[in-house]
């Protein structure tokens, strides 16, 4: 039995949650927020979506499997860690784009942001892998 109103609400909810998560991720360096928090919020959105639409649909939406997302996240983190080596600096030295670059005013772009994005992607992948596995096996969809 499909409930159109619920479906609409949930897909709207997912969009809101994702936007909110990205907002939290980007402001995390200066204000409360950051990769972990954003990841939990984003995956909550997906989970609600999965409850209504089923896990298959979510997996389709993500294009890649949740494993691959975890891997991508780890790769981003690794890149941000190793990138300074190419600028003959020590590992994990923060690299920054000059601050007069006009982005969102408050936001500073640099490897820490890349790192936080990697954390966001990995943790989202982890939580989604766990919850989607449970849902699938226990036939929650």
């Amino acid at each position: 039995m499909r409930n159109i109103i619920l479906e609409k609400i949930v897909s709207l909810f997912l969009k809101v949650m994702l936007i909110f998560a990205i907002y939290l991720l980007l402001r995390g360096h200066n204000n409360p927020g950051g990769g972990f928090i954003a990841a939990i919020i984003a995956s909550t959105g997906f989970v609600f979506y999965a409850i209504i639409y089923g896990t298959k649909k979510v997996e389709k939406m993500l294009h890649l499997s949740t494993h691959q997302w975890m891997g991508i996240g780890l790769l981003l983190v690794l890149i941000s860690t190793l990138l300074p080596l190419f600028f003959s600096k020590e590992i994990q030295t923060g690299l920054w784009i000059p601050s007069d670059f006009p982005v969102l005013g408050l936001l500073s772009l640099g490897t820490p942001l890349l790192f936080d994005t990697g954390v966001f992607v990995t943790v989202s992948g982890v939580i989604l892998t766990i919850i989607l596995s449970i849902m699938e096996v226990l036939e929650w969809n």
């Binding site: 972990f36 943790v123 982890v126 939580i127 766990i130 596995s133 449970i134």
Partner: peptide, 13 residues
């Protein structure tokens, strides 16, 4: 906390 979350999920599974 986040690791605790991972461990919780793992133990549950």
């Amino acid at each position: 906390i986040v690791i605790g979350l991972g461990i919780a999920a793992y133990i549950l599974a």
